[in-house]
Design a protein around this nucleic acid. Structure first.
Length: 149
DNA sequence: CGTTTGACTACGC
DNA sequence: CGCGTAGCCAAAC
């Protein structure tokens, strides 16, 4: 797999960040990776290429049910679990329950539901970096697309 | 021991 | 938006 040199350190960092994603928001593998400093001995340039993969591995290895794993999707706003799989369907259902809307092509609008990351103080306190966030952000509760509930 | 297989992403057309 | 490609690496077949 695409594992970091130190999964026992890297994975918990990923999970800790994932736990911070609020209900009704989503983040991406790459965004989480951007908050984690490149591991000791890893070329930052290489980390930039592999970080998202490593985050994906960490999520795959996740066993803690209390972490909102469903809020981590790929940079295209798609669910990365195999299409049609039980896991993918569960993920979509969980997200829709939080008010997240999927387009006809099965994608989430990251400019609308994307997360800006943890508070700077939290990041600093945990030795993490400010995330690379997608561009401008719309309101998730834009009246043009009302939530059902 | 060669292949396949992953919870990825940026980029090109 | 849909498809294809390169870059990356180890474990399970």
């Amino acid at each position: 797999m695409f594992n970091p040199p130190n999964p026992e350190v890297f994975n918990p960092m990923v999970w800790k960040i994932a736990r911070q994603v609020p209900e009704g928001r989503v983040t991406t593998y790459g965004q989480i990776a951007s908050m984690i400093p490149s591991p000791e001995g890893v070329d930052p340039l290489q980390y930039e290429r592999l970080g998202s993969r490593w985050v994906g591995s960490a999520m795959r290895a996740l066993r803690d049910e209390t972490i909102p794993w469903q809020r981590v999707i790929n940079s295209q706003g798609e669910i990365s679990l195999p299409k049609g799989s039980k896991g993918a369907e569960e993920q979509r259902a969980l997200l829709e329950m939080e008010g997240i809307i999927f387009s006809a092509s099965g994608r989430v609008d990251l400019t609308r539901f994307g997360w800006d990351g943890p508070e700077p103080e939290w990041l600093a306190a945990n030795g993490l970096l400010p995330p690379r966030t997608p561009g401008k952000r719309k309101s998730p509760h834009d009246a043009s697309q009302p939530r059902l509930l």
